[in-house]
Amino acid sequence: MIRVLLADDEAMVRAGVAAILAADGGIEVVAEAADGHEAVEQVRLTRPDVALLDIRMPRLDGLAAAREIRSVRPETAVVMLTTFGEDAYIGTALGDGASGFLLKSGDPRELIAGVRAVAEGAAFLSPKVAKRVLTQLSGGAQLSRSAKAKERVAGLTEREREVLALVGSGLSNADIAKRLHVVEGTVKAYVSTILGRLGARNRVQAAITAYEAGLV
């Protein structure tokens, strides 16, 4: 069972998201919070697998809450709930270790897929969010970023590029292992090496490099 903390200052949004997650028999919302401080405390108390955080919340916003959660409980994967008007926050959240980005107005199936993916150790970017992430990070220099990403990826072995492409597609280590017919420990070693060679802090940053390099 995947245990989820849901934090949003709007009660109706929390109710809607909780209802969607409840439709999946393998996901349980174990705690809810109306602000960032409460979210951090609930993580300490309930030790969830995934913290689903709204970016804009009172007292402590989602970005600050994500940093504290990653500090007090690194095992809890953080997913940010965003709207199209919050692109400017995405780069900051990436640097703070968020494992996924989902749109509040997105397909409910993406919400479930995203929670499952990050719980299994993968990165997950809603397709619409992924496109906007690249645009926001590029600052109008997408061609330059693409060239730099391709240069970094060129330093990987063929197998490492294959693994990176699968990371960019949102697959967990277990899924990648099945796809490549290897043990999960081998995939973990590949991912660790890839992160180091790319200078990526986490799987989301590696996934973005895979997008920019055209591997996904």
Rank of each mutant, 00 (worst) to 15 (best):
G140F: 07
A98L: 06
A141Y: 12
G16L: 09
T76E: 02
Y211H: 11
M12Q: 12
V50L: 00
T82R: 01
L125F: 15
P108S: 05
A34N: 08
E160W: 05
D8M: 08
A154Q: 12
L81G: 01
I194N: 06
V129W: 02
M80N: 09
F124R: 07
D9C: 10
G36S: 08
A33V: 05
A33Y: 07
G97M: 11
S99C: 01
Q142N: 07
A207I: 05
A207N: 03
G196V: 01
A210F: 04
L195E: 01
F101W: 09
K104M: 00
T76D: 01
A66M: 14
E151D: 14
R161Y: 02
I2F: 00
R152E: 07
L195D: 01
V167Y: 13
A130K: 10
A206P: 06
E28D: 15
A154W: 04
V153Q: 07
A200W: 05
E75I: 00
I2Q: 00
A64F: 03
R44Y: 11
D9R: 14
S126N: 15
G214R: 12
A39D: 01
L21N: 09
K104C: 00
Y190C: 05
G97P: 07
I208H: 04
Y89A: 11
M57Y: 02
V216N: 04
L81M: 11
L45F: 03
A122H: 03
T186P: 12
A122K: 03
R159V: 14
G16P: 11
D87L: 14
G139A: 09
V4N: 07
V187F: 11
S146D: 08
A206Q: 06
E86R: 04
L164T: 12
I176F: 08
A7H: 07
A64P: 04
A18H: 07
S105K: 03
L103H: 09
H181W: 06
E68D: 03
V4E: 02
A189N: 11
A154L: 11
E38D: 09
V4I: 11
V183N: 11
V129E: 04
V40Q: 06
L21C: 05
G26D: 15
R161M: 03
S105D: 15
A123R: 01
E110W: 02
E120W: 04
A130N: 06
T76F: 00
S126C: 13
G95D: 13
S144G: 12
L94C: 12
L94F: 12
V13H: 03
R73H: 11
F124S: 08
V153Y: 09
L63D: 04
P74V: 02
R161W: 06
A65T: 00
V182Q: 13
G185M: 11
D24M: 00
R44A: 12
D8S: 11
R56K: 12
N173T: 02
E184R: 15
E162N: 12
L94V: 13
Q42F: 13
E41W: 09
A154G: 08
G199P: 03
G97F: 10
E212A: 08
R132S: 09
